[in-house]
Computed example of a mutant assay.
Amino acid sequence: MAAPYRLLFVCLGNICRSPAAEGVMRSLIEAKGFTDRVHIRSAGTGGWHAGKLPDQRMRNAAQNRGYELISRARQVTEGDLRDYDLILVMDRQNLRDVRSYDRSSEFGAKIRLFCDFCSVHQESEVPDPYYGGEQGFELVLDLLEDGCRGVLEHISSALA
C-alpha cells in the first residue's frame, strides 16, 4: 500500500481555525473511507497554546455540527514542509510565516491558502474568530466545510 497522503492545516495559534479544519476534514475522510490513506494534522505559526485543546467556543460550534475537535495545539516546524504533501494556511500572514521556514524555496508549491479550495464562498482568507462573537465561529465552519470538500476532491485524484 502506498504511503498515506499527508495534509497539514495551519493558523496562528492552532486553537480555532486549523483544528476545526482538521476535524471537518477528518469527518469527510472517514465518510469517504480514506481513513488509512490520508493523514491529517494541524499546527500554529505561534507556539503559545502548545499542548492545549481547541478553544471551547470553537469546540462547541463544531460539536453542534457533528465534529469532534480533540487535537492538541502544536507549532509548525521546518520539518513539516518536508513531511506533508499539502500545507493549507488560513490567511496571508500564515502564508508568509510558513513560507519563511522554506529557506531553499523548494516547498512553495505545497503551501497554499485554504480558501483556494472553496467553491461556494468568495472569501480569500478564513478570518480568525478568536476575538469576535459566536457568528465568527459559524462563518469559519461554513468556510471550512466548503473548502474541505474542495480539498477532498483535490486529494482524491492524488489517491486514485
Rank of each mutant, 00 (worst) to 15 (best):
Y5P: 01
R6A: 13
L8K: 07
L8Y: 04
F9H: 00
C11S: 11
C11W: 06
L12E: 04
A20R: 00
A20K: 06
A20P: 06
M25Y: 02
L28R: 08
L28C: 08
L28K: 14
E30C: 05
K32Y: 05
G33I: 06
F34G: 02
F34Q: 03
T35N: 03
R37C: 05
V38R: 02
H39L: 11
H39D: 04
R41M: 06
W48V: 06
H49P: 06
H49D: 08
K52L: 09
K52T: 11
P54G: 11
R59M: 15
N60E: 15
A61I: 12
A61Y: 10
Q63M: 13
N64S: 14
N64V: 06
G66H: 10
Y67T: 01
E68F: 10
I70P: 00
S71N: 12
Q75M: 13
V76K: 01
E78C: 08
E78D: 11
G79Y: 05
L86D: 09
L88R: 04
V89S: 00
D91V: 13
N94A: 14
R96V: 07
V98A: 09
V98I: 14
R99C: 03
R99T: 03
Y101D: 00
D116C: 12
F117N: 13
S119C: 07
H121Y: 15
H121Q: 12
Q122E: 15
V126Q: 09
D128S: 09
D128P: 13
G132Y: 10
G136A: 10
L141M: 08
G150E: 09
V151H: 03
V151K: 11
E153H: 11
E153L: 09
I155S: 04
S157L: 10
S157T: 12
A158R: 14
A158G: 04
L159G: 09
